[in-house]
Computed example of a mutant assay.
Amino acid sequence: MTRQPAPPVPRAAAPDDPSPGHITRSWPRASALLTITPLLRYAVARHAVPPGTVCRTGCDACGAPIGPHRPWPALGPTARCGGCGARVGAPPATVELAALAALAALLLTRPPAVEVAAAGWWLAFAVPLIFIDVAVHRLPNRLTWPAAVGTWLLLGLAALTGAGATPWLRAVAAGLGLALFFATTTLLLGTRGFGIGDAKLALSAGALLGWYGWSVPVLGLLLALTLSGLVALGLLVSRRARWSSHLPFGPYLVLGTLGALLLVW
Rank of each mutant, 00 (worst) to 15 (best):
R80S: 13
L155T: 12
L157V: 15
D60E: 15
T184D: 09
A159H: 04
R240N: 09
A163W: 00
T57M: 10
L106M: 07
C81K: 03
Y212H: 15
P7F: 05
L187G: 04
A6D: 06
V88E: 08
A224V: 11
P65Q: 11
V54C: 05
L97N: 02
L203I: 11
A104Y: 03
I196D: 13
G52H: 07
A183H: 04
L262V: 15
P50T: 05
A101M: 12
I23F: 13
V264P: 00
F181K: 00
R3S: 04
L129H: 07
A118C: 03
P8S: 13
G150H: 01
F125V: 12
L160I: 14
L187N: 04
A232Y: 02
P51V: 12
V88M: 00
F125D: 07
L180G: 05
P77F: 03
G197E: 10
L223R: 05
S238E: 11
L255V: 14
P10R: 03
A13G: 06
P38T: 14
P146F: 07
L34Q: 09
W211A: 01
G229N: 01
R11N: 06
R142Y: 10
A99Q: 04
E115D: 13
R11T: 14
A32M: 13
G83S: 13
T184V: 14
G150C: 09
V88Q: 01
L253D: 14
R239D: 14
H69W: 11
H22M: 11
D17T: 15
S245E: 04
V136W: 03
G256V: 13
A48T: 12
I196W: 14
R87E: 12
L188E: 05
G58S: 14
R110P: 00
R29M: 07
A30G: 13
A102I: 08
R87P: 09
A79T: 13
P92H: 01
L129K: 01
G67K: 05
T184C: 07
Y212Q: 08
R70L: 08
T144D: 09
L203H: 09
T257N: 00
L143Q: 14
A135C: 02
L108N: 10
P248Q: 03
A86V: 12
P91R: 02
A79P: 10
G210S: 02
G85S: 06
T78H: 06
T53H: 14
